[in-house]
Design a protein around this nucleic acid. Sequence first.
DNA 1: ATGAAAGCGCTAACAC
DNA 2: GTGTTAGCGCTTTCAT
Lengths: 340, 340
Amino acid sequence: MGTTLKDIAEYCGVSSATVSMIINGKSGRISDDTIRRVEDAVRHLGYTPNIAARSMVTKQSKTIGLTIPDISDYFFSELAKGVGDEADEHGYDLLIGNTGSKLDKEKEYIQVFQGRSVDGIIFAPLNSCEENDLFQGLQKKHYPFVTIERYIKDQVPGVFMKNFQGAYDLTRLMIEKGHRKIAFITGPLCTASASQRLSGYKAACRSMNIAVDEQLIFSGDFSYESGNRVGMEFFDERECTATAILASNNRMALGFYEEILSHGLSVPEDLSIAGIGGARFYPVLNPKITTIDMPIYDLGREAAKLLFHLLKGEEIKKRAVEFNLNVLDQGSIRDLNTLR
Amino acid sequence: MGTTLKDIAEYCGVSSATVSMIINGKSGRISDDTIRRVEDAVRHLGYTPNIAARSMVTKQSKTIGLTIPDISDYFFSELAKGVGDEADEHGYDLLIGNTGSKLDKEKEYIQVFQGRSVDGIIFAPLNSCEENDLFQGLQKKHYPFVTIERYIKDQVPGVFMKNFQGAYDLTRLMIEKGHRKIAFITGPLCTASASQRLSGYKAACRSMNIAVDEQLIFSGDFSYESGNRVGMEFFDERECTATAILASNNRMALGFYEEILSHGLSVPEDLSIAGIGGARFYPVLNPKITTIDMPIYDLGREAAKLLFHLLKGEEIKKRAVEFNLNVLDQGSIRDLNTLR
DNA sequence: ATGAAAGCGCTAACAC
DNA sequence: GTGTTAGCGCTTTCAT
């Protein structure tokens, strides 16, 4: 199809080795004249290097692989953007594997990635007991990879958000504003992030001498709909006397918020609400939801940075990069101390 | 690194040609015994074909390229999901090029894609006069590609949404509900979709003998913030007597909605609002925004389908696939006919 | 029913 | 300074 090195070489009357060196910037000992002629020819003939051929000899493809559960989820597309931008700056391209949260798909992509000789892999969330084998296999092969928000034993390089601390801080804020009965909506507890957030909530309660009441813990799955569902359950149970709701992510918080409004109640006058981040949502609402700010884009970038360190064979000082999470108070938690 | 064809061949005491045929299902004239032995060895040794090597000889990479302006935008990530799922079903992988809406980035990705011998390319929106050259170049090289929502002369294969018709229908609905002064917020008019939506709006007005009032047309850029900004302008101009707002997409509609609420007004009692789709938004609001339902995922899938037809060299009956758009009335438009 | 050999486009080592 | 050569892992004739 396209122009090859050989075409350029013949056109210039030099060998393809010479052209190769020039193209790869290893023109140390090549005459300026030749360099110019070759460069002209490259432009003239419109040469594009064949990456496959190059990969075969260099053993690297300048590509990194990324597996994510769902690219249409804002969390993961924002993450992918961070990874992609960082890769781009290093002259790498990105192959994305959409797993649909299925472990066998993830395994499949590992094969695909290897077949395509990607230089390294980044794995975003998905959790199962089988995973350790997966990662151990890669480690044994010395295949560089980085995980995002996946806590696993024998810690491999990874980037994380301080989910526990974020949940803890937000819960503390609610308590400090005078709430003693705070309902919690969990995410899918098989994921590390959801279970850590739950732990943070519980720890904060205990730290303020509030007994954790299992009746106040509702289980969701990070979806908007599960926020709705919990909202309906909540209002059905007459005896539920919570004054505030904390959702493990913002999507669920929004789902719950909808139920509050559709019951003709107001936030925060009748009920306070907060969410632990992880989904973009357009403000609109008044008040907006008090939340935990999550640096998703940076998380992706940092994961890629870590991978590139690995690829350069650099000694990694810290195999785990952790991100602090900050509370963003937007007025959806009522301050009970001010009434009297 | 990994196991090669040759490894398998030696292990089984056959030639690599034989193994190759078996792996590629061209085992027509190979003894069942050999087949079984090879297949066992493949499993045992954990063979993964080297795609780069294969591509070199077959001249195809089983990869398609997709350029999008912003992967973290729901429209494009949903689109990418559709493309990816369809690709997956055909045994293809997806290389995504994030252009940040920059034409030179898009050009760069064309190079990258060619270098990686992607079998075909799908281009999602971005618009400029330089584009025609770009596409003509590809066409001359007989490089298969498909566009999404890009109207260009000498129509290349592409998939489209009936933006004009969608805007037209939604505007008509507003008029039928008795609105005569309908403000419009445009998207960036350099994009085909935005300008078509504007045309649809104007045409609907004219069809009902309503003069198009340029004072009622505000320019936005598809962002939430521009919806806010237009909202502020709107309320600043005392003489603006519109009873309804139509935004060229939902993000802007939401931005405007926020301004309505923050002025202490209600939808649709004080002001009616609608948006022409293109962004996911969580319901929450009451009423939800009346909108145009957009089959974004399907659009992506259909684009990929079209590309695969091209790749198979099949005769394309229709080079343009168009999607009908339907109005989704959710109550944010007040019916002025019912009052007296 | 299977093997030998050529060649895809490129880079790297070593000659000259 | 530049050319020659070998080889990366695979598929594909063409022999046998």
